[in-house]
Design a protein around this nucleic acid. Sequence first.
DNA 1: CCTGATGATGTTAGCGCTATCATTTCGCGC
DNA 2: GCGCGAAATGATAGCGCTAACATCATCAGG
Lengths: 364, 364
Amino acid sequence: MGRFPDSRFDKAADGGRDNPRATGAVRLSDVAAAAGVAAMTVSRALNQPELVSERTRERVQRAVIETGYVPNRVAGALASSRSKMVAVLVPTVAHSLFADVVQSITDTLAVEGYQVLLGLTGYQTEEEAAVVETVLSRRPDALVVAGTRHSEATRQRLGAARIPVVEIWDMSDDPLDMLIGFSHHAVGEAVADHLLGCGYQRFGQAMADDPRSHQRAEGFNARILAEQKARPDAGIKVTTHWAEIPATLVGGRTTAANVLAGMPDCEAIFCSSDTLAMGVIAEAQSRAMAIPEALAVMGFGDMSFAAATWPALSTVRIDGAEIGRLTAAHLLQRFGAGSPDPAHDIVDVGFEIVARQTTLSPRS
Amino acid sequence: MGRFPDSRFDKAADGGRDNPRATGAVRLSDVAAAAGVAAMTVSRALNQPELVSERTRERVQRAVIETGYVPNRVAGALASSRSKMVAVLVPTVAHSLFADVVQSITDTLAVEGYQVLLGLTGYQTEEEAAVVETVLSRRPDALVVAGTRHSEATRQRLGAARIPVVEIWDMSDDPLDMLIGFSHHAVGEAVADHLLGCGYQRFGQAMADDPRSHQRAEGFNARILAEQKARPDAGIKVTTHWAEIPATLVGGRTTAANVLAGMPDCEAIFCSSDTLAMGVIAEAQSRAMAIPEALAVMGFGDMSFAAATWPALSTVRIDGAEIGRLTAAHLLQRFGAGSPDPAHDIVDVGFEIVARQTTLSPRS
DNA sequence: CCTGATGATGTTAGCGCTATCATTTCGCGC
DNA sequence: GCGCGAAATGATAGCGCTAACATCATCAGG
C-alpha cells in the first residue's frame, strides 16, 4: 500500500491513506475521526477551546493523546496567515550582550506560544539584506533586528512585509516602526564626562571599527572638545585609534600600543568593548604602567569577565535582557489588539557606568 | 463576480485580487504572469534552475525583481514536506558554550539555505518535552538537542517525527540517532588525573547541581577513589559540595566555604563551571589563601574571562564551535543523499585541559 | 408551539506552493 | 521534411490546515 513500507502505525492513523503526497503523520482529520467530530471542531478545540463545549473538548483531548497528534503549524500558518514565529536578527549570538537579548526575547515570547527564528547577520550590511529576505520568506509575524542602519533594499522589504518591526540596540530619529535601545553617542559623552570628573585630561580611544563604536567615539570626542573649548588652557587632548573587527584581546594590545605611541602621556583609554579593554590592560601591565594610577581603562559591555579582571574593569553596562523583555512585550501587545502607539514604541533603556578599579574615583 | 478561479490577471500584480483570504503579497503566479510563463516554471527557475532554459531563467529573474517577489516558504514547505529549517534545542544561549554551538550551527547551515528555529529548554526535562512538541509542529527537517537524557514522551515524539536527530554535548551508549559530544565522566577523570599529577592529595568539588556536572563529579571521584586504593597510605581524600543552579559567582563562594568548612586542609577544588571557579577564587582571596600554593582551582568551560582572572584560571576547554560545525555537516550530509552511517554518526570531540595559574605545574 | 437569539458544530473553499504527469518544443540524424 | 528521444514547459491536484459561512440544536419569551 503505497510508499510507506514500514507503516506500522498501530491503528486508525493511516487507515486508507494511499495518496503519495501525504506525509504519513497523524492529521487533524485523523483526530477528528477518532473523536467522532469534524476536523474543524478539532481545530477549534485546540486553538479556541472556549468555542467548544466541555464534552467535545474532552473527547478531542483524548483523541489527540490516543493518536499522538502533533499539529502541523506549517499548514496552519498557510491557512491563517499567522505563523506564530518572530524572526530575530542579530550580528552574532557568540557575544553575551546579544545572547542575553535573544534569550530573553525567546523566553518571553514562548509564554504566548511564539517561537524565534534566528538570523545571524554578521556585521555586514549586505549580509543583513540576504538574511532579511530569507527570514521573510518564512512569513514571521514580526521581525526584530539589531541596529538602525539598513540598506535601502532592506528597508523596502521590511516595509513591504507589513509586519511589526522592532529595531533594537541603537537609537535613531526615524525608526522603521518600533525602537528599543540606547544612544551610543550618549554612552560616549557619559564616559567622557565620567573620566573628566575623575580629573583625567589626556585621553585615548581604542575602538573597534564598526558603526556603533564610531558613534560612541563621536560622543566621546564631542564631549571632550566641548571641555577643551570651556577650558582652553587645561591641556585636554584626545586621540582615537581603530582596531580591526572582530575585537580581540590582541587587537586591544596593539591598539593600546598605537595610542601610547602617539600620546605617550595618555592618562585614560576608552575602549569600545570589554574585550579590547582587557587587551589594553595587558599592554599596560606589560609596560609596568600602574592601573589606574598611570593609566585608566574603561570598557564597554560589562561582560561576565569584567568584574573578574585584575584590576576589575570599569565599564558601561547595558541591560540586554531588559531590551529583550521590552521587545517581546511590545510585540505581544501588537499581536493582541494593541494598535501602533508611536509614543510608547520608542524606548531608550539607557545604560549605566560601572566604576570599578581601572578608573580613579571621581572627584567629589 | 463569483469567487474567481478564472478571473485572469492581466499583468499588474494583484489587479483582480478580490479573495478575502489572500495575503496581498506578490505570489508565484504574479511573477509567472509578469514573465509570461506558468507558475510551475517560475518555481523551477527558482528552485531547480538547471531544469529551465537560460532564456526563461533570465526572464523569470527579471520578473522576480520587477515584482519584488519574496517566496512563501510556508506554502513551499507544506507542498514539498521540506521546511529547510533545523530546530536547535539548548538549555540557554546566555552561556557562551551553547552560544558558540548555536552560532556555528546557524552559520554552517545558512550556506545551504537552512535556517535555525531556536528552542530554549532551560535545564528541566519537562520543559524540554513541551519545547520539543512545539518545535516539531513546525515540521523542521532535523532537530538538534543538547543532552542525551530525555523523557520517554520526548523520545517517542522524536522517533515518530522521522527526521534526523543530533544529540550534542554529551556522550551516551544509546543515542537516538546521531551523537556529537564528549564524555563528562572522562572530563572528571582527566581533571582528577591532572591534579593528582600536580601532587595534590586533598580534593574538594564545588559542583552545580545539574546532571552533567554530576557526571563530571562521578568521573572525578572514580579516579580519586582508584588512586586511594592504589596508594592507601597517601592520605588522599575528596569531598563534594553542590551549588544551586544557575551557577553564580556568589554560589561559588558559598560552596567553597562549605568545602573548606568540611575539609580545612583542602588543597584543590574542581568546579563544574568557570563561574563557580571565580567564586571559589574570590572566597580564597578573602581568606588570604594563596592561589595556587595554598589552594588550587580548576574550572570548566574556558569561558572568555577564564584567561583574564587573577590568577588566570586553569580550566577545561570544550570546542563548542567545532561541535556546531560537525553537527551541521552531518545534517547536511543526511539531507544530501547520505544514508545513515552509524559508524561515523557518533563523534567524541573530546576536551582539553588548559593549565593556567590556578594550579601548580604537573610534576614531571 | 412558534420565533428568534445564541451557541455548537459542520461544510466548503481556499492559503501559495510543488509533485506528478501530460504536453509541447527542440535537436538531430537520415 | 520526418521521426524520435530528450528537454522544456504546462495543467492538475493536492499538502494540512482554518476563515467564512451554513446548518443544526437549544432555550426563553410570547
